[in-house]
């Protein structure tokens, strides 16, 4: 039995049900097939059927035990750090948060060399400032704390 496929299939079916329920509130049209709900419902039914196939297939016996997947704790931690970085940008601004994020992620990735820990954030910021702010005129967020 393939538990991840079973789990994903069930999640998709729940998602489809919510999506379909949402289409009930859409207005109808004179031509039924051009109403705002028509195409979303077609996609929903399609995904429902495909998810059912995925669930059915997950009960089959796996050849070779299905293979092992690498642990994902460190990837999850990287996602958490990136989420924190993105949440902090509107408050602390792009520049401070980017320096902190790069140093933290480098340290997390076992980089202990001080030259690397200082040069990479500075070099990255310098490049981003010159290219995005000076050349492309993109205004990077300065943060609500500094406004």
């Amino acid at each position: 039995m393939n538990r991840p496929n079973l789990f994903i299939g069930v999640i998709l079916i729940i998602g489809c049900s919510i999506y379909f329920y949402e289409t009930m509130s859409f207005p109808s049209s004179d031509l039924q097939m051009t109403s705002p709900a028509f195409i979303p419902r077609v996609y929903c039914i399609l995904l429902f059927i495909l998810s059912a196939f995925l669930i059915a297939g997950s009960f089959k016996r796996e050849e070779g035990g299905g293979g092992s997947r690498p642990p994902f704790l460190h990837s999850l931690m990287a996602m958490g750090m990136t989420s924190l970085y993105i949440i902090a940008i509107p408050f602390l601004g792009f520049y401070i948060t980017t320096v902190l994020f790069i140093v933290a992620l480098l340290y997390f990735a076992k980089v202990k060399n001080y030259a690397v820990l200082t040069s990479i954030p500075i070099g990255t910021l310098a490049f981003l400032y010159l290219f995005f702010v000076k050349v492309l005129n993109v205004g990077l967020p300065v943060g609500s704390l500094f406004q």
């Binding site: 990287a78 970085y85 480098l106 990479i120 990255t124 993109v138």
Partner: peptide
């Protein structure tokens, strides 16, 4: 990769922001 990946994640953030200047 330990050096490249933080830079890529920062580039992803700036790149996504720069399209419409929308967080």
């Amino acid at each position: 990769k330990s050096v490249l990946m933080p830079i890529i994640l920062v580039l992803c953030t700036v790149g996504a922001f720069a399209i419409n200047n929308n967080f």
